[in-house]
Design a protein around this nucleic acid. Structure first.
Lengths: 237, 237
DNA sequence: AGTCACCGGGTTGTCAGACAACTTGGCTGA
DNA sequence: TCAGCCAAGTTGTCTGACAACCCGGTGACT
């Protein structure tokens, strides 16, 4: 029990507009407000929720941001054909182990595919970047320093080597969730050495331009990473 | 040149709150408002943009929705540690062919991984669902009807068979973008027949519980689908 | 010198009212 | 029957006020 453990964030009261948003989101998702259908007017919503119209507007502004609804001035707010499907969020990210395993598995799927593409498309510059980050991790390993940042950067360099902006961005989106999970690995020299060996295999496969080898190496690395974190990927949900 | 082609959506004026949102988003992304830093106050923003405070609040509400900022009542709005990385959106979705190819490639990566997992984890119920949708597509093929809905549902059933909620949701997110791309395939009997053969191979592999065969079948299907759409996946960006 | 309570100024969150800009349906006249 | 007009209703924006909260500075006490 270390005193350096971060203290939990103190809860802040949920704003009224956030509550209205969540309620409406749930009603849309459940089909109570069906696709193509019109939402009650702002005036009606304000009355029903017992809040001011400004609160309703902010909530609706958020629904618009997530493409749950679209508004037409003078006509109303209409539920979109596929509500909420214009953006993807990871849910219950702070949750139980099974849920973390699911997120991890999504990451595995993405990283493995990215490694394969990187092996096909890597340029000289990509290889420079990958090698530099690999060397940084190597130096961290030898010097007992923290390799987390280099580990992150290595994976980002793989994503960049796919030369597919959507994949690159998706990997960044996922990656921002996993930086913290790398700390335990780099705090233990044995685990870090094993991970570095795996990084080396991924790098070698990408250097060789061998998509199959890259896939296999990335798969092994991600599965081992899961094991290091105590996650069970075999059973699924 | 058919008259049945959908007419382009007429442009609507962009609301002031949308403009403020976009400007602030850009400033945050570019680093002008750095992570951890405080945004100008609502009053200041309203003055600088020449709009009312309500417009600023709606824009900030959207920034909050996308985790660009978090607000503390009485203190201000602060840029988050990793701005904008709590949700993933496909960008420039209406754009050039190269960009569509990139989105398609992300989909390929996801669908192939999902098929592999489905082969590992499919239940009796999953197989029922898959077979039912396959039969629906078969009936559409024989009766000259439209198989798009069944095609969509077949892919959704694969996602469900992964028994990973995050992957399932991600596939739905991606899938909602691809329904329309299935129309040309199902409008041409030869193309539809080819696609259906590929669906059959995916189904057989999942039935057999063979992840390798499922991966290979899904890869072939997605690459052929790209070809049918005239997309070039080989070159990358 | 250090700690704690209080206060003032400032900021976000909410409310209420007014008006602009737009939409939609119904009615009327040609 | 069709086009134009109008009234009622709805979203978009503005303004002003107040509640709830934050933060830094100051003074009192130990």
């Amino acid at each position: 029990m270390t005193m350096a453990a971060p203290l939990p964030r103190l809860a802040r009261p949920v704003s009224l507009s956030e509550e209205v948003f969540r309620t409406l989101e749930g009603r849309i998702r459940s089909g109570e407000f069906p696709p193509g259908g019109r939402l009650p007017t702002e005036k009606q919503l304000a009355e029903r929720f017992g809040v001011s119209r400004a609160v309703v507007r902010e909530a609706v502004s958020r629904l618009k941001a997530d493409a749950y609804v679209e508004t037409r001035q003078g006509a109303g707010a209409y539920v979109t054909a596929q509500p909420g499907n214009q953006s993807f969020r990871l849910e219950a990210a702070g949750g139980a182990r099974g849920e973390i395993a699911q997120v991890f598995e999504l990451r595995l799927l993405a990283e493995v595919g990215a490694a394969e593409l990187a092996a096909r498309r890597r340029t000289g510059k990509d290889l420079q970047d990958l090698r530099r980050e690999w060397r940084r991790m190597e130096a961290a390993l030898q010097g007992g320093a923290d390799g987390v940042a280099a580990d992150d950067a290595f994976h980002r360099a793989i994503a960049a080597a796919t030369h597919n902006e959507q994949i690159h961005r998706f990997m960044e989106f996922l990656g921002s969730r996993f930086s913290e999970t790398r700390h335990p690995t780099w705090a233990d020299a044995t685990l870090a050495r094993a991970a570095q060996k795996e990084h080396g295999r991924i790098l070698a496969a990408i250097e060789a331009g061998d998509p199959r080898a890259a896939r296999a190496a990335a798969t092994a690395h991600l599965r081992n990473a899961a094991r290091r974190l105590g996650l069970d990927l075999e059973g699924g949900k």
